[in-house]
Amino acid sequence: MKEEIAIKAKNISKTFHISEDSHNTVKHRLFNLFNPPRRKEVKAVKMLSIDIKKGECIGLLGRNGSGKSTLVKVLAGVYPTDSGYVNINGTTMLMNLGVGMSQELTARENIYVSGSVLGLKIKEIDALFEEIVSFAELEEFIDTKVKFFSSGMMARLGFSIAVNAGADIMFLDEIFAVGDMKFQEKAIKVFESSWIEGRTVILVSHSMDTIRQYCSRAAYMDHGELKFFGDTEKAIEMYTADNH
């Protein structure tokens, strides 16, 4: 049987143009027609191709500023790529310190909106609702607007939605830094249970133990280039060598 591909990216690259003065208005553009802004190019991701199979857990390693987060956003379909193409097979969800939640909505509404964006039907969300709330330990604040939440509460709610509703393809960017110790233990337990099985997960982490434990393959990035993609141990080795 042919293995199904979750994400196929070919020759993708991403460059950010950072200008020193922002020409964000028509007025500014008109007055500065002959005085173009000085631009700096930042090549965040340089020409790379990557295939991720369904049900795989991929680790993504690299030092700060190596382009991990940009690559994750391009693969998740949040940023458009400058060259090549990305084929995404299913819904994606990107999780870092926050997940897509509106400050103006209550926790209840956010659960429904996020669940729906992740591809669930209302009935499926109804069934999951209690579990999401109790996992996030937010029973008393269901109808409170998220803007009155503490950052820990926000993070817990986001994590809980991600864990219980989950998209087809999950991008987890340093998520084990969320919540207090008790909650972190809970989060790790979720990972130890079979949650990760059957899901496509891209895990960005600086914790080698986490990567070693869960990832079947890993990628190592340096200065926007994909230096290695394959065996987890090898990737960890390269990353550790880079840090010395």
């Binding site: 998740a76 949040v78 994606t92 990107l94 999780m95 926050g98 897509g100 939640m101 964006v117 992740l118």
Partner: peptide, 11 residues
């Protein structure tokens, strides 16, 4: 205003 909807997913 609706950035939260597309910033973390491929909606």
């Amino acid at each position: 205003t609706k950035k939260y909807l597309y910033e973390y997913s491929n909606m």
